[in-house]
Amino acid sequence: MASEAADQRGNNDHLVESNDPDHPANLIPSLCAKFWTLGWVTGTGGGCSIREEDLVYIAPSGVQKELMKPADIYVLSLPHQVPSTPRTYIRSPPAFKPSQCTPLFLAAFTRRGAGCCIHTHSQWAVLVTLLLESAPATESRRVFEINNIEQIKGFGKGPGKVGNLGYHDTLRIPVIENTAHEEDLTEFLEDAMDEFPDAYAVLVRRHGVYVWGDNVHKAKTMCESLDYLFRLAVEMRQLGIPWISDIPVVQPRRKAVEQ
């Protein structure tokens, strides 16, 4: 990765210097510290990236996520990235290396128009992929599906579509196989995006999950909702409760009185 970092080191530091807590260079360390408390980014694993117009801010590789500082953030210009050539950064920290998650983050930004992408090593996400891995041959091992759970309402219907999923809708998250090197996951993540155009996340078997949204707020909301659903799914399986159920729609006995 040294070639990728062969840019103007030490220049453009102003890109990560701001007193605004909502500036991407401040938000990424703040979010990663929060994710560390949740057990999502332990041992330097996981990461986060935020796109602000044409600039992409990325957490580095090899940093203790709860100790990350704005000065540790990489910045690249999205329009200036040329396929099949080394990535160039317009701002690099004096230490660390670019994240191997970078091409997967970029896929969320270029293919989904996302404003934020979060990668976690949540144990519940990993356990769900293991449960799917051991599922009977008659069941799909390539997609996590769950319905009739209130937290499903935290997910949009799909990019470009209005509104969120409903209580009775089925949430579907594709699963891709892990690779020895994280950046090699990119083509499989892109294939999953093509196959499931309405999905806002992709599970990586025995690894974790990538979640993206139009902005930081939406990405964080869906990431938290997913982790809730993954944990619930693991406990449901332990209790012998199916993830997909067929229950009747309950109609209200009377309409709300108009104000």
Rank of each mutant, 00 (worst) to 15 (best):
residue 139 E to M: 05
residue 180 A to S: 15
residue 154 G to I: 01
residue 69 K to S: 13
residue 25 A to S: 14
residue 55 L to P: 00
residue 112 R to F: 15
residue 7 D to T: 15
residue 236 M to F: 14
residue 123 Q to S: 15
residue 245 S to D: 09
residue 226 L to V: 04
residue 70 P to Y: 08
residue 44 T to K: 08
residue 33 A to G: 15
residue 185 L to C: 09
residue 96 F to C: 10
residue 113 G to Y: 02
residue 122 S to A: 08
residue 208 G to L: 01
residue 94 P to R: 09
residue 180 A to P: 07
residue 74 Y to P: 08
residue 173 I to D: 12
residue 217 H to A: 04
residue 232 L to D: 01
residue 134 S to Q: 13
residue 176 I to R: 03
residue 6 A to W: 04
residue 115 G to L: 06
residue 135 A to Q: 05
residue 182 E to S: 03
residue 132 L to K: 13
residue 23 H to S: 08
residue 204 V to E: 02
residue 231 R to Q: 09
residue 191 D to R: 04
residue 220 K to Q: 02
residue 61 S to R: 06
residue 204 V to T: 10
residue 186 T to P: 02
residue 120 T to R: 02
residue 109 F to E: 03
residue 103 P to D: 03
residue 147 N to W: 13
residue 137 A to H: 09
residue 220 K to W: 02
residue 258 E to V: 15
residue 192 A to H: 04
residue 198 D to M: 03
residue 136 P to L: 06
residue 153 K to P: 01
residue 84 S to P: 00
residue 242 P to L: 05
residue 60 P to M: 03
residue 123 Q to R: 13
residue 243 W to S: 11
residue 254 R to E: 12
residue 214 D to Y: 00
residue 50 I to K: 01
residue 161 K to S: 07
residue 84 S to K: 12
residue 95 A to R: 10
residue 249 V to S: 04
residue 188 F to K: 06
residue 91 R to E: 11
residue 43 G to S: 14
residue 195 E to R: 10
residue 113 G to S: 04
residue 9 R to K: 13
residue 183 E to I: 10
residue 55 L to I: 11
residue 26 N to D: 10
residue 84 S to M: 08
residue 101 C to Y: 03
residue 241 I to Y: 09
residue 46 G to H: 15
residue 154 G to E: 08
residue 93 P to F: 06
residue 134 S to W: 10
residue 81 Q to H: 06
residue 197 P to W: 06
residue 146 I to F: 13
residue 87 R to E: 04
residue 126 V to N: 12
residue 122 S to Y: 02
residue 31 L to R: 08
residue 19 N to G: 11
residue 203 L to D: 11
residue 171 L to I: 13
residue 187 E to R: 14
residue 221 T to A: 08
residue 254 R to W: 02
residue 216 V to H: 01
residue 129 T to W: 00
residue 255 K to Y: 13
residue 4 E to V: 06
residue 162 V to W: 08
residue 20 D to T: 05
residue 100 Q to F: 02
residue 176 I to D: 01
residue 173 I to N: 12
residue 69 K to N: 14
residue 189 L to Y: 00
residue 181 H to V: 09
residue 17 E to L: 06
residue 2 A to I: 07
residue 180 A to I: 14
residue 121 H to A: 01
residue 257 V to I: 11
residue 194 D to E: 11
residue 69 K to I: 12
residue 81 Q to S: 11
residue 215 N to V: 01
residue 147 N to K: 08
residue 144 F to Y: 11
residue 246 D to K: 09
residue 219 A to P: 01
residue 172 R to L: 12
residue 175 V to M: 01
residue 188 F to S: 04
residue 124 W to T: 09
residue 126 V to L: 11
residue 46 G to S: 12
residue 18 S to C: 09
residue 62 G to E: 14
residue 116 C to S: 08
residue 89 Y to L: 05
residue 111 R to H: 14
residue 230 F to L: 10
residue 8 Q to N: 08
residue 187 E to W: 04
residue 222 M to T: 04
residue 13 D to Y: 00
residue 186 T to Q: 14
residue 248 P to E: 04
